[in-house]
Design a protein around this nucleic acid. Structure first.
Lengths: 147, 147
DNA sequence: AATTGCATTGAGACTCGGTATCATCGCGCC
DNA sequence: GGCGCGATGATACCGAGTCTCAATGCAATT
């Protein structure tokens, strides 16, 4: 659904050169549904013999992060992962079973942040909320065989 | 205020052996106010010639995490850091200027999480909220010289 | 106080994510 | 088509964290 070309367009519009490697990484990213690590992409690129260097993948990921096409997640395990997302402020609920990620909007968080700012005296300029759990599909799937 | 011996007591009560290295790490940790990285402790241990192995420091940190004496933070930079804290569920506001961390309780977040769970259908079993900003002291200090 | 089992330790090798270097390449403007 | 500069890739490098394994020492027990 995200379509590689849409991503490529964004890269172009932002004034960055549209190169074959970037196109390739955009392709890999747009084919993903859940979260993935840089290593996942490197492995896939290698498996598909795309001939892209490791460093280039990292650079492309940084670029996509900067453009707001991707967001970095910190999984409970401490790993860093990426998810495709819309370039507006939001948060993610990540399924700890299948890795799928769903975007959510503010949902009242702004008020919570304001409360905290007032109570602590901090000037809060940045926050991160990450939620982990089991998505509807996985809940159903686990029905007969609970963990 | 945290006192090394209080930490040692917790370790003991939990059924773990109280060894010299663990005592030493407890000492290092209790002397800290803001957040710190594992590397910070390793460096300090080395500087003080405590003769503790690197691996041991990591193991001690893991132990303290497990006991709820420490919590792991993911800084916006992607670094992993630790902060001393109480072993009850809570969140942190981290000063991006001086590194100091303040604990905060729920502050209405629970309701937000419930809302999200209901909206998305996820069964949320874990969440993390991290806030970054400038603490009161640093705000005052920056008064005459804004960033 | 001596014995002893087993958790813990330390040194160092190893893995792995990410970055820096630098000569080469190729995108896109003219 | 030519050209400048941004982008690339091979490789070396770095730093965080883990693993291994023989040696150590805590603490329970007598």
């Amino acid at each position: 659904m995200p379509t590689t070309s849409a991503l490529v367009t964004i890269i172009d519009r932002a004034g960055y050169r549209v190169t074959a490697p970037r196109r390739a990484v955009a392709g890999l990213v747009s084919g993903r549904t859940g979260h993935f690590t840089a290593a996942d992409l490197v492995a896939e690129a290698r498996a598909r013999r795309l001939g892209i260097g490791r460093a280039t993948i990292f650079r492309a990921l940084d670029l996509l992060l900067e453009l707001g096409i991707l967001e970095r997640l910190d999984l409970p395990s401490g790993e860093h992962a990426y998810v495709r997302c819309e370039p507006i402020h939001h948060h993610h609920v990540v399924c700890s079973s299948c890795g799928r990620a769903t975007e959510i909007d503010d949902a009242g968080l702004r008020a919570v942040v304001d409360t905290i700012a007032e109570r602590t005296g901090y000037e809060i300029d940045r926050h991160r909320l990450e939620l982990f759990g089991r998505c509807p599909d996985c809940r159903v799937a686990a029905e007969g065989a609970p963990s």
